[in-house]
């Protein structure tokens, strides 16, 4: 049965989503986003298995590559802001509002 894997994927996705909402550290928030992407990967691979096609597994590789690129960009931005503010808290960066 593949349902378990889908449920796990959904759980991971939800954990990632909630993590984005509750964590303050930008790096952790970002890792939660990565968790969501990997939940997607799990879903893709599961469906590939379920439907008997290879596409899903190939897609997972694509997603990994994109995620890697995202990591590069994300870390660059977060590190810069950390250097400026001496803080990686996303709540500190709230000058732009209203």
């Amino acid at each position: 049965m593949t349902t378990h894997y889908l449920v796990l994927s959904a759980l991971l996705f939800a954990i990632g989503g909630v993590g984005v909402l509750v964590r303050r550290n930008a790096i952790v928030v970002f890792m939660c986003v990565e968790l969501m992407l990997n939940a997607c990967n799990l879903a893709f691979v599961t469906f590939a298995r379920q439907n008997g096609s290879l596409d899903g597994q190939v897609i997972a590789f694509f997603v990994m590559i994109v995620a890697a690129a995202e990591v590069v960009i994300g870390l660059a931005i977060i590190v810069t802001i950390f250097r400026t503010r001496r803080s990686a808290s996303v709540d500190d960066a709230s000058l732009l509002k209203h």
Binding site: G17, V20, L21, V22, R24, V29, V90, D91, A93, S94, L95, L96, K97, H98
Partner: peptide, 17 residues
């Protein structure tokens, strides 16, 4: 209403969620 735009990225993420 503009007070809704708190400036906190997490509250924006909440609205998306």
């Amino acid at each position: 209403l503009r007070r809704v735009q708190t400036g906190f990225v997490r509250s924006y993420a909440l609205s998306i969620f």
